[in-house]
């Protein structure tokens, strides 16, 4: 059965049990989203654990996770529902005899039409409705967690289409009428901030910005997920990643890349972070050639530091 969070502390500890380390900020806002019954819009750079958060929430509450991955050109029939035409067609063919039976007894044409009209619902019922993620989340018998991933990839029209669902948790299917959610799903939207989302969508959500973690947070994540890495090396590795992020990279390494790297270090049985190990493994962290070259220049083979100036004027250079 589903358990809900009853304070920010439980959010934190429950997420922790799902091996997700939530900061106070994440815990507070997630708790608030659940309390207010509002969708949670998380933004932040790629790979900081936005999708993980939704998974962890689903795990912690014991709810089913229903995921909708957005992409350009995503439309209603892929996100919401579709009539299963071939099945409908098959049924019409197979049920022809039965139809003849039903209609055969009719005395007049209009009576037959009436009878047929009564049966009409058979062909437009849930039986022939192919549920896509959104409808599934709404019709689900059990409360669920709906993850709408990378909403910024979908077109602006799709956002508009989501509004009804996000504010009222209902959808209109022309043939069936309005379907209202039995249980309000816990909705998490993620966005990589590649374009600005519409005001209307933002208004309906609570906003959570997840940034790159601090040194301690990231270290905690590494220790939790890669327990085999020795603590000293973990510290060094995380410090190195944090330093890379400060540099001007085309694509800064994300947490997931830090974890990959940590795993790589374990696999290579590295004992400390020397120059060779770094050179061999840094491609796990950086995915752009330009970044790689830069990192090698700046951090692995740094040019000899300029000689400290000893002349009199050197003293004033800071001012």
């Amino acid at each position: 059965m589903t358990t809900l969070f009853d304070s920010t502390k439980t959010v934190k500890s429950e997420l922790n049990k799902q091996r997700y380390i939530a900061s106070d900020e994440i815990a507070t806002i997630a708790y608030l989203a659940q309390k207010l019954g509002k969708p949670l819009l998380t933004e932040g750079p790629a790979g900081v654990g936005k999708t993980e958060l939704a998974k962890a929430i689903a795990g912690a509450t014991g709810r089913e996770l229903i995921r909708l991955q957005c992409y350009e050109g995503l439309d209603e029939s892929k996100a919401l529902y579709e009539w299963e035409y071939s099945k409908q067609l098959l049924y019409t063919q197979l049920l022809r005899d039965k139809l003849n039976d039903t209609l055969g007894k009719a005395d007049s044409l209009s009576e037959a039409a009436d009878k047929l009209a009564k049966e009409e619902d058979v062909f437009f019922s849930n039986r022939f409705l192919l549920q896509r993620p959104l409808l599934k989340a709404i019709l689900s018998e059990q409360p669920s967690v709906l993850l709408i991933d990378e909403i910024d990839r979908a077109d602006a029209e799709f956002e508009a289409f989501l509004l009804e669902i996000l504010s009222d948790f209902q959808v209109s299917v022309p043939e069936l009428g309005t379907l209202v959610a039995k249980h309000k799903p816990f909705v998490v939207l993620t966005s990589n901030n590649t374009r600005e989302l519409s005001e209307a969508l933002k208004r309906r959500c609570l906003y959570l910005f997840i940034d790159y973690p601090t040194l301690q947070e990231e270290l905690a994540v590494v220790r939790l997920k890669v327990p085999d890495l020795n603590p000293k090396l973990a510290q060094q590795a995380v410090e190195f990643v944090q330093r890379l992020r400060k540099g001007d990279m085309r694509k800064s390494p994300s947490i997931s890349e830090t974890l990959d790297w940590a795993n790589a270090l374990v696999a290579l049985n590295a004992s400390n972070l020397d120059k060779n190990t770094l050179e061999d493994t840094i491609s796990v962290l950086l995915k752009h050639e330009a970044d790689l070259q830069k990192a090698k220049r700046q951090y692995i083979n740094p040019p000899p530091p300029p000689k400290p100036r000893t002349d009199e004027f050197g003293k004033f250079s800071g001012n």
Binding site: D24, T28, I29, L32, A33, K202, Y207, F209
Partner: peptide, 19 residues
């Protein structure tokens, strides 16, 4: 205080540049 601040921020601010 911190929870109070976050509850205001999560509800009022919907854009990174407004934080």
């Amino acid at each position: 205080r911190e929870e109070f601040r976050l509850s205001l921020r999560a509800t009022l601010i919907k854009d990174l540049k407004d934080i």
